[in-house]
Design a protein around this nucleic acid. Structure first.
Length: 362
DNA sequence: AAGCCGGGGAT
DNA sequence: ATCCCAGGCTT
């Protein structure tokens, strides 16, 4: 370790940031609440996707008390389409904890902030450094990639076993004098210059410090381990129609897409037709007997660990009272009312086709 | 340590 | 159509 070199590296990096940083909404504030919201949204999610969500979320919940007092369904509605919905559930839980146990102020100690649901190593360090200017190093995907190239680190960036390697390096390099600017500079460099593909090495302020660049090994870093191929499933969804209304159900709060609303559906078994699946699912999940389905559309959707194709059918209600087996709530609604409910992306993808069909058959 | 949890963008 | 990106929680 050569502290003097590190001091020079930090200075060059922060200088670069001050001249090249993007003008992003969450950089107009040091309010810990707003910084926290932005960092949770930015987790696994790209800047351009986050910007409109950030604006709407803060317009709807201007401070942490507004968020705490809101119902979870309103929070999910605001989060709709952003994915990883446990982030929204944890945001709501944490807001209540902060209001009840911390007088509405997000804690400025590492041990306290990390106790909050949804706050791990990264969010803790990001909020402490950016909002409170406390020297806690952040280690996100950008930082791992930058370090990987800067020091030719052979530990794969996408292997959980590697985390300690990057964590240690981040502590060594941390700038104790201007943590907020330094951390953001490091991540901004990863986003704008030291990009995953085609890094702009000629524009890099750290070029003279970069071991991978020096040895012409930029293409070899970061190292990563292979991920396994993901399975594909076929899903059938049934839109039950009864007196001009349709049936939607709510998923349980835990697990995939927890708390969100959807039209009932399920996996198509081998040797089963989509139409048959549709009837079976409606019988077992909501206890309804329906007429043969009319095909509406097929959409495709990709999750983290599998891909699906969804065949959508409209079915005329015949008999039965809704009894839930799986879902935790249901509503009979006019299709026009659907916007009031938080739906996941796969359902949103077929709603335009559904509207068209229902309008023409009405 | 491994698996679960969305969605969007680049190619 | 295929690959890439990626932090926190649970088990």
């Amino acid at each position: 370790m050569v502290p003097k070199q590190y001091r020079q590296l930090r200075k060059v990096l922060v200088d670069w940031y001050q001249h090249n940083q993007r003008n992003l909404p969450w950089r107009q504030t040091r309010d810990p609440y707003k910084i926290w919201i932005s960092e949770v949204m930015l987790q696994q999610t790209q800047v351009n996707t986050v910007i409109p969500y950030y604006q709407r979320f803060l317009a709807g919940f201007p401070d942490i008390h507004d968020l705490a007092e809101s119902g979870l369904q309103n929070v999910l509605k605001m989060w709709e389409g952003l994915g990883y919905y446990s982030r929204a559930r944890n945001l709501h839980k944490t807001a209540n904890i902060v209001v009840n146990d911390h007088a509405g102020v997000i804690p400025d100690s590492l041990t306290e902030i990390k106790k909050l649901p949804g706050v791990g190593d990264y969010i803790a360090a990001a909020v402490l450094s950016i909002a409170y200017n406390i020297p806690q190093p952040v280690v996100d995907g950008n930082v791992k990639r930058v370090f990987s190239r800067l020091f030719c680190i052979d530990a794969p960036v996408n292997d959980s076993k590697s985390h300690t390697v990057f964590k240690e390096k981040s502590h060594e390099l941390m700038d104790p004098t201007m943590p907020a600017a330094y951390n953001q500079a490091l991540m901004e460099l990863g986003a704008l210059v030291c990009k995953p593909q085609n890094p702009h090495c000629p524009d890099c302020p750290l070029q003279s410090h970069c071991l991978a660049y020096k040895d012409d090994k930029i293409k070899e870093y970061p190292r990563r381990i292979k991920t396994k191929p993901i399975p594909k499933y076929a899903i059938a969804v049934g839109v039950v129609m009864k007196k001009g209304k349709v049936l939607i159900t709510r998923r349980k709060d835990e697990g995939l897409l927890g708390g969100l609303w959807e039209f009932p559906g399920g996996r198509i078994s081998p040797s089963e037709s989509p139409e048959t699946t549709c009837l079976r699912i409606l019988k077992t999940k909501v206890n309804l007997t329906v007429g043969a389905g009319t095909f509406v559309t097929r959409i495709k959707h990709a999750y983290t660990h599998f891909k699906i194709t969804v065949d959508v059918f409209t079915c005329r209600y015949k008999a039965g009272r809704v009894k839930l087996n799986g879902p935790v709530d249901f509503r009979w609604i006019h299709l026009d009312e659907i916007e009031a409910y938080p739906l996941h992306k796969a359902n949103h993808k077929f709603i335009p086709a559904l509207r068209k069909i229902m309008k023409s058959s009405a």
